[in-house]
Write a protein that binds this DNA or RNA. Structure first.
Lengths: 239, 239
DNA sequence: GTGCGTGATTGATAATTATCAAGTAGCAAG
DNA sequence: CTTGCTACTTGATAATTATCAATCACGCAC
């Protein structure tokens, strides 16, 4: 594995405080693989054999039941997916597929568990990572239960604008049908939600979204930090 | 604190492997309080000063935004709530109120964090508890996104029947409006969902539900273990 | 440049869900 | 027993969301 990829992975909060020897051991026993778009990396209900790290590309976490499917999360680099099942040798509750050509580091679950037992800093980082994952999921659940589809879209746009918007322009990084599924609606209703947001100063052309009146969008979206703030891994500093 | 309550708390997976001295230290610095029904124990957005343990009674975890409210979870004894925020000195994302007269043990957050750093078994139990909380929340999110209200009710009933039903009779342990909110619908629609389930062999009289045709209910509900199985703290044994 | 395939949009319709209002039922207090 | 209060049910209506179908738009390969 190229040292620049290892450096990338090392920067993840989960791995940052790891002893050098522990990190080296994890990396040496891992597989770095390149996958084209549309490849299934894991399937729900299968045993959790690896902890996956998205080094490059984009990965969709999704679930299915009774011929219905939904997108639960979209993992960008450098992100990990599904630590929880790995730690307790359980089955995955979600599947994962690549949304674009992706480079994935696969760390054997057994090695993760061993490192957890032997490196106290790693154990602590795992606690923090699990806590953050839990809080992120609670926020998603709150949004699903208490907001309409158009409101969820509005808050998603505000979030994207804050994190990576340029001059009020947001580029949707995935196909719209994936975004729709992630936000909990059909593709048809995503189109209609964008139409709703037109009267709040949002114009969309393909994957390019222009937020022309941020103030109007804020009034409609009513962001709530307990739902919309990113969930960081570190202790929040009092301000 | 009475030794029978301490024994109850000790039986929680989170505390079971704790060193005696660590457990004693936690208990001695805690508060055991009795609250009548309808009392707010914590409020979302407040700092997480205590880890709460429901020793007796019943507690509703709920959240609110923009004049809307939803029930996220109902905690029965002996259950804990909101470990994640306690560990990282963050704010609560949910509020909690008693649904009936309740006895609550409140363990200072600082003590929990200290115990986590000093007792390896506790750290490990915390990892497992967080992983289980995360998986439970993912399952709730899947249910909200992929099922209708009546389907969620049906699966809730099947779950209750399996855990505590007697001869096909399920007793709803909370007010119906709380159950409705927990399942993600209005009280009116809960009534209507019960009407829908009538043709699948379910009869309801107040808080008493009779499941007369379990086979018919199963066909309608289509339970999925990846959504409906209880999330245990221990490694699942292969069967 | 053209054709094909796939995702996106639009329109019509149906289903689910919420809101509002009135009536019913159950429980507790006097 | 009666009264009052609150939760629950029922009905009507509105809003949100999904489904189905047809058309449009865009990107890629030849």
């Amino acid at each position: 594995m190229r040292s620049e990829n290892a450096a990338k992975v090392r920067q993840l909060a989960l791995f940052r405080e790891l002893h050098d020897s522990t990190f080296r051991d994890l990396i040496e026993t891992s597989f770095l693989q390149r996958f084209p778009r549309g490849v299934n990396l894991i399937r729900e209900n299968e045993p959790a054999d690896f902890l996956h790290v998205v080094v490059e590309g984009l990965v969709e976490m999704y679930a299915a039941t009774d011929m219905r499917e939904t997108t639960l999360e979209i993992i960008a680099p450098v992100g990990i997916f599904i630590l929880a099942a790995v730690l307790n040798d359980q089955v995955y509750l979600q599947s994962a597929r690549t949304l674009e050509p992706s480079t994935i580091l696969m760390i054997p679950a057994e090695k993760v568990r061993h490192a957890m037992e032997t490196d106290q800093a790693f154990m602590r980082a795992i606690v923090m990572e699990l806590a953050a994952s839990y809080r992120r999921t609670i926020k998603d659940l709150k949004s699903q239960k208490m907001r309409s589809g158009a409101e969820r879209l509005a808050n998603w746009l505000l979030r994207m604008q804050r994190e990576r918007g340029r001059n009020g322009v947001v580029e949707i990084p995935v196909e719209k049908r994936v975004l729709a599924s992630h936000l909990g609606m059909t593709p048809e209703n995503l189109s209609r939600a964008f139409l709703t947001l037109r009267s709040h100063g949002v114009k969309v052309h393909g994957s390019r979204v222009e937020i022309e009146r941020l103030d109007a969008l804020l009034v409609f979206a009513k962001p709530d930090p307990l739902i919309d703030d990113p969930e960081n891994l570190f202790r929040q500093t009092s301000s």
